[in-house]
């Protein structure tokens, strides 16, 4: 699910630190934002906005971090509103609901671990390429835009 292909260039210390922050942002936001699922998306989005003109390495990882949050937001939001409708609306706790929560927790936990791993590896200057999100990031993020280290 996660690979470490060779990047277009070797990022410097400052870039590696910044790229690492893009993953760290979502981790901090998860702690602050739980159980509101949109907070971590906002955090990575603002980090992405702040670094969209940064170097290719920083931009690439800020984009991947943002994309990785996007899909979780959908499944988390669905779970969040389902919970709200159970507490305040007409829904009641069912086997489907608990199954959904269980899967959501597994996916969130997997993403959480992958984010910690990515943050550590990018800090070391390694290029972490996630399954699917890395491919989409390759299409969105081109080396030509913004400040480029090469």
């Amino acid at each position: 699910m996660i690979s470490t292909p060779k990047f277009a260039y070797k990022p410097n210390e400052h870039e590696a630190e910044k790229a690492s922050y893009s993953y760290l942002m979502s981790l901090i936001a998860v702690i602050v934002g739980l159980p509101i699922p949109i907070i971590n998306l906002f955090a990575t989005f603002f980090f992405y906005l702040a670094n969209r003109n940064g170097t290719y390495y920083v931009r690439w990882h800020a984009t991947q971090a943002l994309l990785s949050q996007l899909s979780l937001v959908f499944i988390n939001s669905y779970g969040f509103w389902w919970t709200v409708s159970i507490i305040f609306g007409d829904e009641s706790v069912s086997n489907h609901y608990i199954s959904y929560l269980f899967v959501v927790i597994i996916f969130n936990f997997t993403e959480f671990i992958a984010t910690i791993y990515s943050s550590i590896q990018t800090r070391k200057g390694k290029h972490i390429h996630w399954w699917l999100y890395g491919d989409v990031t390759d299409i969105i993020c081109k080396p030509g835009n913004g400040q480029n280290s090469i």
């Binding site: 899909s71 069912s94 086997n95 608990i98 199954s99 959904y100 996916f107 699917l132 491919d135 299409i139």
Partner: peptide
Amino acid sequence: MDKIVFRLIGIVSLFSISLWAANQMNWME
């Protein structure tokens, strides 16, 4: 692009299969 669509289907399938598998458990009990 084909690779992305294939991987997207893969993730959606993984989520659906996980949901189906979790649903086989009687959590309420």
